[in-house]
């Protein structure tokens, strides 16, 4: 899918996306010539169709995770079925961050923990707090995790 600014005859560029949490998706594009912006808004079915392809609108911010589509889309997964490799050298997690992580379904929790830990480790962050999680979530585009 591409967007063309008809007045400028210029291909519009991806700027940002938002997942409001109601199953819809908002993606903003801007014309590099005149600066005009448009938003692509998808309904839950259209959003799900894109997710089903295992692709990220706006491009990937983190490498593909093993079984990523299955882990993020399966609603009847067993909490302990997948054991993520121990990340002992990872940053510490504050109690508040652990509380928030505990709200993530167990089937995908290990993967989410690893993604946040790696993000923090790369930045020399020694403790993961809810604020760190917010920053990572926004930067990595993990709104659905």
């Amino acid at each position: 899918m591409k967007f063309l600014c008809v007045d400028c005859d210029a291909q519009m560029r991806y700027e940002e996306r938002e997942l409001p949490g109601d199953g819809t998706l908002a993606v903003m594009f801007a014309c590099p010539t005149c600066g005009r912006k448009v938003a692509l808004l998808t309904n839950p079915m259209e959003t799900q169709l894109v997710s089903s392809l295992g692709v990220k609108i706006g491009g990937r911010t983190v490498p593909d995770q093993p079984l990523e589509t299955v882990r993020t889309q399966l609603g009847t997964g067993a909490d302990g079925a997948l054991v993520d490799e121990d990340t002992r050298r990872a940053p510490a997690w504050s109690a508040a961050a652990e509380d928030r992580l505990a709200r993530v379904p167990g089937f995908v929790r290990g993967m989410v923990r690893r993604l946040y830990s790696e993000w923090a480790k790369e930045r020399g962050i020694e403790e993961i707090t809810p604020e760190v999680m917010d920053a990572a979530r926004k930067e990595l585009g993990l709104e659905e995790m």
Partner: peptide
């Protein structure tokens, strides 16, 4: 990967 013997595959989409 499924949660129990009787759990079917249910995806999260609409």
């Amino acid at each position: 990967l499924l949660a129990s013997d009787s759990a079917p595959v249910e995806w999260k989409g609409p």
